[in-house]
């Protein structure tokens, strides 16, 4: 649900977490992103930075300039000024990402975790079990059957937190307990109902079952998409995974290495919230591919 009154939760002396709801839907993400934009445009005093995500926004503030209670008031007033998300139409880039599903690299990583940390059901089988799918082949069909909405960047530089736009492809799974200490670069995984791509080898908590060779952050700016930012994505982008073989992965990997890879992105589409919600209400969300 979307809360009638947002919850303002303290995070030590310099942070406030504003929880807007307790589920994952596009509208909550639009409110979180909209609030972050409003803060920037309004140049609200005492705010150092924000980090919007699926259903919440974190504020980093300077307590010498604004107290917790005043910040709460400011945020309430800015939230009240946001227009309805139904009218939103925005430019949305669509990235096509080759991905090896049920790949050898994430398999090896999970095996290593089972040996060194704690035994667990292999991740693809576990997600199948948790989401009520038939088998891992269906996991591949369902996970690659939708466009993903980049709701936020975070955790690690450039890592996209994404939600499936097609409700028929919504999967859910718990996160690792305890988290992994490493994950191969380019791993695609999911936890809760969120999907992410790991930009580099990092710790992680998502269930992992695929890998892409496409770079999503680049400090050397070797590809034109990184000219303005070393992170490939921005909120409001979409990603479509295209299942490929290990051979195709290695081909792309070599092109990335050589700097000749052409990142597959199209920029001619607008995302209309009205069209999207109309479409959602016209389909049977309980169906599976």
């Amino acid at each position: 649900m979307i809360y009638e009154e947002p919850r303002f939760l303290p995070g030590g002396d310099r942070y406030m977490l504003i929880e807007l709801g307790n589920e994952m839907n596009l509208e909550l993400n639009f409110i979180a992103q909209g609030l972050a934009t409003a803060i920037t445009e309004n140049n609200t005093k005492g705010i150092v930075e924000t980090a919007p995500c699926f259903a919440s926004m974190l504020v980093h503030y300077e307590p010498d300039e604004i107290g917790f209670d005043d910040l709460k008031k400011e945020m309430t007033s800015l939230l009240g000024s946001l227009g309805p998300s139904t009218d939103i139409e925005l430019d949305s880039r669509l990235f096509y990402f080759p991905a090896v599903y049920l790949d050898p690299w994430t398999k090896e990583c999970v095996q290593d975790y089972c040996e060194k940390v704690t035994p667990k059901t292999p991740d693809p089988e576990f997600v199948v079990e948790q989401s009520g799918l038939k088998d891992v082949e269906q996991l591949v069909r369902v996970h690659s059957g939708t466009e993903y909405w980049v709701a936020a960047l975070g955790f690690w530089p450039g890592l996209p937190f994404m939600m499936p736009l097609d409700p028929r492809c919504m999967l859910t799974a718990p996160k690792y307990n305890p988290p992994r200490t490493w994950t191969p670069q380019g791993t695609i995984g999911m936890g809760g109902a969120s999907t992410a791509i790991y930009p580099v080898a990092t710790p992680g908590g998502y269930q992992i079952f695929a890998r892409t060779p496409v770079p999503i952050w680049d400090t050397e700016k070797r590809f034109p998409q990184f000219e303005d930012s070393i992170c490939l994505f921005q909120a409001g982008d979409r990603v479509k995974f295209v299942p490929c073989t290990v051979e195709e992965f290695e081909h792309v990997e070599a092109e990335v290495e050589a700097g000749t890879y052409l990142i597959n992105v199209v920029e001619y589409q607008k995302f209309s919230v009205r069209n999207y919600t109309d479409w959602i209400s016209s389909i049977d969300a309980s169906q599976r591919f």
Partner: peptide, 24 residues
């Protein structure tokens, strides 16, 4: 369910610096 079933799981959100983060 989109939080993740483990009790420490929540829909991904921003972390304050200094947070005592409970992974499992």
């Amino acid at each position: 369910p989109e939080h993740g079933a483990e009790p420490s799981n929540i829909i991904d959100h921003g972390y304050p610096l200094g947070a005592i983060n409970l992974g499992g």
